[in-house]
Design a protein around this nucleic acid. Structure first.
Length: 425
RNA sequence: GGAGAGAUGGCCGAGCGGUUUAAGGCGCAGUCCUGGAAAGACUGUUUAUCGGAAACGGUAACAAGGGUUCGAAUCCCUUUCUCUCCGCCA
């Protein structure tokens, strides 16, 4: 959520930021609504002031054993009704302004490249070389089914399309990837948390999924709960409505979770394999930092995500997303794209973003500045560290052998207990 | 699912229609005292928002929302959460 004061005082800056996102939002209408809100508040406060002083008079008289005059009581009765009416109006106006604010995206950072679509994203660096094959590399779903570690047919029998079923060494490999990610991030100062997968509306609003992206979420309406699309939601909301201690910052969390996405609007895209499933595993990195540190912390967070790809020997590139392609809550995002030999292209495997105070304001998450003794909103960041199913897929595609077997990357072997997945005879 | 108890400031805890400006304590900060410290004394110590250059002042907040009342932390209703007991289930 943007600060209404920022919008009032620097409306051109905000308009400019939204223009870079190709967003048409009538901010003048919002300011008009907010003016109205302020006028109603001023009215109510005047009325309450009068009520408070006159009621005090009544109380004083009663304590002295005297009866207050009827005129005074009548006047107060009238005030009560007036205040009640105005309060109803205020509630409506406030809801209107808040709902408006909750649907405005964050404004892009100055360093975010300006552009319209993913075609305008900028390659920041390319790390590692795609492996060379003297045969035609297969897609991961072909490899996995042949090895008996992936079974999409039965997954769709059980649940439908866009679900995966892991079997045999596939299960061990998935668990190995998760453990490897968590252990590696913990060595770099992240604290591990395991959080609920079902969260309430307030949490979804806090990180920005609601109210605008309801149709992207799996819902349990009977219980007013939502399945998390990423651990970002539950981990970031750990500190909703809290005031953090300056000396504890930055706070860094690593969290494994299953993630659930309806993928509404992506019909026909990536229908095969592990790339775009309704349910998938992910290790997420989340940071709470001082505002002055967030730019630097985004670079470090991205490096931490890159680190696991480097250790796995997966070639990747870092993309700076352009203003038209960054997410609703983000000011700046780096995507890590892993090389997929079967598809002969780079695919997103991590997305690292700096939200600045956008989520913190929605969540009311503050910190007390030790030097100034003032409270302010923290900055939040997060990034995948990294997507587990997609890592599984890149390993199959990049480490496949001509005979159909898959070699396990060195760093995973102590977790899997085997160093190759062989084709069953 | 049933029955009951509860939710008050950073923390503990009183208050159960109007001098609450939320007692008292702990903690924290400052001043005095001291060679230094402890102890002691005194002073201060929430947040949001509006007005104001500031000092300061208004308004709101005692889990959340609604109601009763001239006036609600206090009475009534609903919801959420915590705890205890019973039942059911793993």
């Amino acid at each position: 959520m943007l600060d209404i004061k920022l919008i009032r005082e620097n409306i051109d800056v905000v308009k400019d930021g939204l223009r870079k996102r190709n967003q048409e939002i009538n901010l003048d209408e919002l300011v008009e609504q907010d003016n109205n809100r302020r006028a109603v508040i001023a009215d109510i406060e005047q009325l309450r002031l009068k009520r408070n002083t006159d009621s005090e008079k009544v109380g004083k008289l009663k304590r002295e054993g005297k009866e207050p005059e009827k005129d005074l009581i009548d006047e107060l009765e009238k005030l009560r009704v007036q205040i009640q009416d105005k309060e109803k109006i205020l509630a409506e106006v406030e809801t209107k302004v808040e709902d408006f604010l909750l649907r405005i995206p964050n404004i892009p950072d100055e360093t975010t490249p300006v552009g319209k679509s993913d075609k305008d994203n900028v390659v920041v660096r390319v790390v590692g070389e795609p492996p060379k094959f003297n045969f035609k590399p297969k897609h991961h779903w072909e490899i996995g089914e042949k090895l008996g570690i992936l079974d999409f047919e039965r997954a769709s029998k059980i649940s439908g399309s866009r679900f995966a079923l892991l079997k045999n060494e596939g299960c061990a490999l998935e668990r190995a990837i998760i453990s490897f990610f968590l252990d590696t991030h913990k060595e770099r100062g992240y604290k591990e948390v395991m959080t609920p997968y079902l969260v309430n509306r307030a949490s979804m609003r806090g990180t920005g999924q609601l109210p605008k992206f309801e149709e992207d979420l799996f819902r349990c309406p009977d219980d007013q709960l939502y399945l998390i699309p990423t651990a970002e939601v539950s981990v970031t909301n750990l500190h909703r409505d809290e005031v953090l201690d300056d000396k504890d910052l930055p706070i860094k969390y690593a969290s494994y979770s299953a993630c659930f996405r309806r993928e509404a609007g992506s019909y026909g895209k990536d229908t095969k394999g592990l790339i775009r499933n309704h349910q998938f595993n992910k290790v997420e990195l989340v940071k709470f930092v001082r505002p002055e540190d967030s730019a630097k912390e985004l670079e470090l967070l991205t490096n931490d995500a890159e680190n696991v790809l480097q250790l796995l020997g997966i070639p990747y590139r870092v993309m700076a997303l352009c203003s038209g392609d960054i997410g609703f809550s983000s000011t700046k995002t780096y995507d890590l794209e892993a090389w997929m030999s079967g598809e002969n292209m780079y695919r997103e495997i991590s997305s690292c973003s700096n939200f600045k105070d956008f989520q913190a304001r929605r969540m009311n998450c503050k910190y007390k500045n030790a030097a100034t003794k003032k409270r302010g909103f923290v900055h939040t960041l997060n990034g995948s560290g990294v997507a587990v199913g997609r890592t599984f897929a890149t390993i199959l595609e990049n480490y496949q052998q001509e005979d159909g077997s898959v070699v396990i990357p060195e760093v995973l072997r102590k977790y899997t207990g085997f160093d190759v997945i062989k084709v069953k005879k």
